[in-house]
Design a protein around this nucleic acid. Structure first.
Lengths: 334, 334
DNA sequence: GGGCAGAATGAAAGCGGTTACATCTTACTG
DNA sequence: CAGTAAGATGTAACCGCTTTCATTCTGCCC
């Protein structure tokens, strides 16, 4: 690999000048610029990004911390982030935290040790306090899918409350009156907000949330399946169920089918996230879209603008979920 | 951030000695080792990985080139790779090529320009010739899901032929005799091999491949859906279909349902890949497992062993697919 | 033509490590 | 106890680039 030194020799200028044309910094006369450029071409010169990083104290890479790489949400988010960053010549590095606090901390250490210029994280296990600390001592931080008090302007999240609202509202408008709810872990803000939206929709329609029709589950398929079984066991009438994510809806659907209930005739079902699987279920799942790819793009934009000084579009903190109507929900018995 | 220099001063030794204890290289007396270690602890010293890379000419990162980050295959592969590499303190960087030759080339350039110590690629669009060239001039290369002649020992792939064989064989053993096949693009080696396996299974059962029951599609859901429609339109009797991947099977299933055929009573269906979606379809899809996560792990192992000199387990080039029996295939009419 | 401002360029000091080589200690050996 | 080889440590060059500051070059004005 050719070095800047060889280019400078070939072009008959100093390395400083070559550096200037590489970075477009400082002033270089057009004539020397051309000499340097042709020298670079002749040697197929490619700046050594490591050396650039060391000298400029900027790694041109941003770290992304996720729970898992696979799975519907994280892959899509990474995808959005990478697309934007790479278009700007920046590198995306990532690490997985598996939703375990110790691992998430270690992953942050790892990413920071690689000198990333910014950090985007989608984590559940870390406490707000730790995030605050990290925000004050490490590289600029962006938090996905979570609102950390005091760092609101660094959080990109979905209006989960509204999402819960529209899901339930749709069922209500279909004349369902007794609507069950399978929730995610209420320790997590997004799960709580979705449930609150559900409650608000009921209230606006003059109904009260029946605690016996709400089950706190775990966002997983098996959890949804068990929750559904438990709901049926309770023997309280209901004609529709809102699931706080699509995976649980898949589980719930399975249980319903096993018990011989037909969807949507006997029971309407709504999910949340609009994960790929929602299209594969039968009947296809009505759900609430979670624009995670766009949110990833937005995170990348923020970084490009605030860390790398590129001017960008307006920053949007909160994204609005939208209803995706498919076949799993039908008119209620009302 | 503390530097190695500060540590050396605090410990009363030279930077060389500090470097030695960091890397476990050279010989350092236990006494000074302890002095240095405690100095590092006192300053919360973290070596600057960029400086290390520049000085040692080793970036401790490996590049992964995929078509997309999301999607069942790539996410799972990345996941396997990252898990192994990170356990060894190595960084995984990636870029997407979107299955477009120019973009894949550019992505390679990008990854190589970040000085990665090895490159793992899962690409379709690049020609064998280019891969050969890259293998000879760039960092060590590993190729996933593809056998490049002359580079067989650098290719990690599935025994697709055998996969096609077992899928069809299962249907034959269920007494199906007329079996259709929806293939992926035959320009791709894996699609070809799967079809060959299908043919061999038929042959071994004394049957001939009926060309009219084979459709070349595109590995996508819509393609599978259209292919199924076309098969039905041809009005040639058949009681089962093998799809060269699960996505096409999902599409095919959709078409069958639309046309009022019941699965598996009227028609048996087998997919390929064991993608997450196969579990969500109804009825659940019988398919052939593609152990892509393990294959990613194996790739990481190879790199750890051959690039970073760590001793590892045996290298396995070819992985054997296994049948995953679920509900979408039943006894044939025979 | 001398003087001068501003533009263009170069010299050299880092950035924070690694490592070849030189030097100084030890611990044995005979 | 001198001689010596292995072990421990330090010195300094170097990795390939950025950037400050000094220097040189231009063109312009009086």
């Amino acid at each position: 690999m050719a070095t800047i030194y060889e280019v400078s020799k070939l072009a008959g200028v100093s390395v400083a000048t070559v550096s200037r044309v590489i970075n477009g910094s400082g002033r270089v006369s057009e004539k020397t610029r051309q000499k340097v450029l042709s020298g670079m071409r002749a040697l197929d010169y490619q700046p050594n990004s490591i050396a650039q990083s060391l000298a400029s104290n900027r790694s041109n890479c941003v770290g992304v911390l996720v729970s898992e790489v696979h799975g519907p949400v994280f892959g899509a988010m990474l995808s959005g982030i990478e697309a934007e960053l790479r278009a700007a010549g920046k590198l995306t590095i990532f690490a997985t935290g598996h939703n375990v606090e110790a691992k998430e901390r270690e992953a942050i250490r790892f990413l920071v040790s690689r000198n990333c210029d910014a950090l985007i994280m989608h984590v559940e296990a870390l406490a707000d306090a730790f995030i605050h600390q990290q925000a004050h001592q490490g590289p600029p931080l962006l938090i996905m899918n979570r609102v950390v008090p005091g760092l609101e302007d660094r959080c990109i999240s979905l209006d989960n409350e509204h999402g819960g609202y529209v899901a339930t509202n749709m069922l209500l408008e279909m004349r369902h009156r007794r609507i069950a709810y399978i929730s995610g872990p209420l320790a997590w803000g997004d799960a709580r907000a979705r449930l609150e939206g559900h409650g608000r929709a009921l209230k606006e329609h003059g109904l009260r949330l029946d605690r016996r029709l709400v089950i706190e589950s775990n966002f997983h398929e098996v959890g949804g399946s068990e929750a559904m079984a438990e709901l049926l066991r309770r023997d309280i009438p209901f004609s529709a169920v809102v699931c706080a994510n699509d995976e649980m809806a898949a589980g719930a659907m399975d249980t319903l089918r096993t018990q011989g209930r037909s969807i949507p005739d006997d029971m309407s079902l709504v999910g949340f996230d609009n994960a790929p699987l929602s299209r594969y279920l039968y009947p296809k799942l009505s759900t609430v879209n979670y624009p995670i790819t766009e949110m990833g793009r937005m995170a990348a934009h923020w970084v490009l603008e605030n860390v790398y000084g590129q001017s960008g579009a307006d920053f949007q903190n909160i994204f609005e979920p939208e209803l995706v109507i498919r076949a799993s929900a039908g008119p209620g018995p009302g």
